[in-house]
Amino acid sequence: MTAGEWRGVPNLARRHWQSLWLRRLFQALTWLGVMLLAILLFRIARQGAVWLDWDFLTSFPSRFPARAGIKSALAGTLWLIGLTALISVPVGVAAAVYLEEFSRAGRLKTFIEVNIANLAGVPSIVYGILGLAIFVRGIGLGRSVLAGALTMSLLILPVIIIAAREAIKAVPQSLRQGAMALGATRWLTVRHHVLPGALPGIMTGVILALSRAIGETAPLIMIGALSYVAFVPEGPMDGFTALPIQIFNWTARPQQEFHGLAAGGIIVLLAVLLLMNAAAVAVRHRFQRRR
């Protein structure tokens, strides 16, 4: 046997060149996104930081910028997100469990699946109209924080269901079979093995969905959340405002000071969002370590 000659690979130089430039392009695009976000955050911070103090968090809105705060809006947002989570998580996870673990393939299931996928793409203002017709007027909840939370729940349910289904699907089939082979019912299998395994994924979906809800403005305006609220909601039937509405209201005013207040409100909104994310990461981490 003689040693074979090195055979050239066709177009090798060109392919390396292509790979290198595409890599640079993708790198640039990634940085573009990061930079845009950084610029936005920087501008907001510069504009709003001077307004951020304890008084800002604990004062009600006012005609006078120096006295205005976001107490009612922050409390309204916390109420709204809390209630929305209480409503949408159990319903969404139950729907996902039903679709993945219990329902049989068939036309009805396909119909439900197609509907959920479509609902995820419906503009939020449409949910606002629905909320106004059903919750505010239909069952007479009025412009309450409960009506707002129900509307928001409708809005994010498709996202939660889809995310939870994916998480449930990702639990290995071998685990289900192992449990069933020990004489477990469907429910016990789901309760002890599928849900714990899917929890991190479900948490991620829930946080994503709630993050969307926390920034939504259109449906709240539609159902008539108030823009000037000088009280904190004390129950689910109270009127409310929310951070995005307060921010929107301030940016619409001509005075420069109110724009600064709006920037301050945005910073608070982002902080709440980050806190929620951090909580989700913490829960996920703890849960994964336990196995």
């Binding site: 071998s174 079979q177 192992g178 449990a179 196995r291």
Partner: peptide
């Protein structure tokens, strides 16, 4: 009872 091809202990 049943034992499967790939060991499938529960993550517990």
């Amino acid at each position: 009872g049943m034992v499967f091809q790939k060991p499938n202990p529960f993550p517990k």
